[in-house]
Design a protein around this nucleic acid. Structure first.
Lengths: 203, 203
DNA sequence: CTTGTGTGTTGACAATGTCAACATCTCCTC
DNA sequence: GAGGAGATGTTGACATTGTCAACACACAAG
């Protein structure tokens, strides 16, 4: 079913090829990993010629950047939908982070991991910063003596856990605990992520 | 300068092509990132024909896996060279982790990040497990009530911080603090990584 | 010296990213 | 409406890449 169908009733213009390409690419990313994504196959899936994508993206990297940006927008929405009760906002956001990585491992690896140059893709940069701003807002206003470092530490922990999960570095039962959210709960309990009022005893 | 030089005094056999290829690949990885590494360019650098690598590695992925395995062995050596005084062993290992990521960002991304299939590269799997075993040994024997989760949390934090650094997700001054090791010190102080005796107040 | 096995080379093929030239559609202006 | 202009899609071409097959050279064992 990957052969080219003429489809005579299809108009010359695709309608929203840009969107279709992003969707096709996202699909390919989850199937084969970000590295194996090919412009031409995305075009095939979208039902256009191998060069049509160049009318919407100047380069392969630009297409990947667009997909990554879309991912960051999704992540931000997830953050905003979460973060309800102020007391365990931090934990909730962490759960959302891990849940996102588990649900879209390929996308997660594209967004981080694969060395996309943010400088040359302002849209991506913007989307990423928007997502992280939500995170920062929710984590900064705690009573910690050095809130910046505390927030960064929490971010690093959750970020690292997500990476470990995505890269299959955890054994089976840990993986399941991570998926259910229990693992992060336990870790948060140990290191005072959910109850950081006790944690500020610093030299 | 990419044309083939006859180089009459060079013998037919390279001597240790396998090693030379790994070295050339490591160089390319740091220069262009793991995704852009090409078998043929590695061969060019090593001064052999484009197909010579296939006598030592069945596939491109196998070469990358060999480089990654070498990276894990380096990391393990760094771990073992560190981890001196038992009290702040955990912090020292974390510093080593971050230092490694900073020193070889491309290699770090190859070892994690780029979805190398460990199942099909037993050498890589072995090297990775060996490195992590050192980490586990040093972090497990603490007085925490759930040492497994505590160790995992610490690992996740350091791993995440390394990723954030490698992916340039931190601004300039934070990056510098991370490079000097101060950042991790501060975070460890906040979350009780270096003094975990107080942190075990868990249901 | 012969011979065989490991190591390197040459040649070929399909797939890919990208450029250039051409075709067709859509819409704005008269 | 007519017509041209700019946007969108297509065809063709090229260099590069991973990989396979066939061949060539080297060195050690007999």
């Amino acid at each position: 079913m990957s052969t080219h169908k003429p489809e005579p009733n299809k108009p010359f213009h695709h309608g929203d090829l840009r969107h279709a390409l992003i969707e096709a690419t996202a699909e390919l990313i989850e199937r084969d990993g970000p590295a194996s994504v090919s412009l031409r196959e995305a075009a095939r899936i979208a039902g256009v010629s191998h060069n049509a994508p160049y009318r919407h993206f100047p380069t392969r990297e630009a297409l990947l950047a667009a997909v990554a940006a879309h991912g960051f927008r999704q992540l931000r929405l997830a953050f905003e939908a979460s973060a309800v009760t102020p007391e365990n906002r931090m934990l909730a956001l962490g759960q959302e982070y891990v849940r996102f990585a588990l649900a879209h491992p390929g996308l997660f690896r594209l967004m981080f991991g694969s060395g996309l140059d943010r400088q040359s893709h302002p849209d991506l940069e913007q989307a990423a910063q928007d997502a992280f701003r939500v995170l920062q807002h929710a984590t900064l206003d705690r009573g910690s003596p050095s809130p910046r470092d505390a927030a960064l530490g929490a971010w690093a922990l959750v970020h690292g856990l997500s990476h470990l999960i995505v890269d299959n570095q955890l054994n089976q039962d840990l993986q399941e605990d991570a998926a259910s959210g229990r693992l992060l709960e336990r870790i948060a309990a140990i290191y005072g992520l959910s109850t950081p009022r006790e944690a500020g005893s610093v030299p």
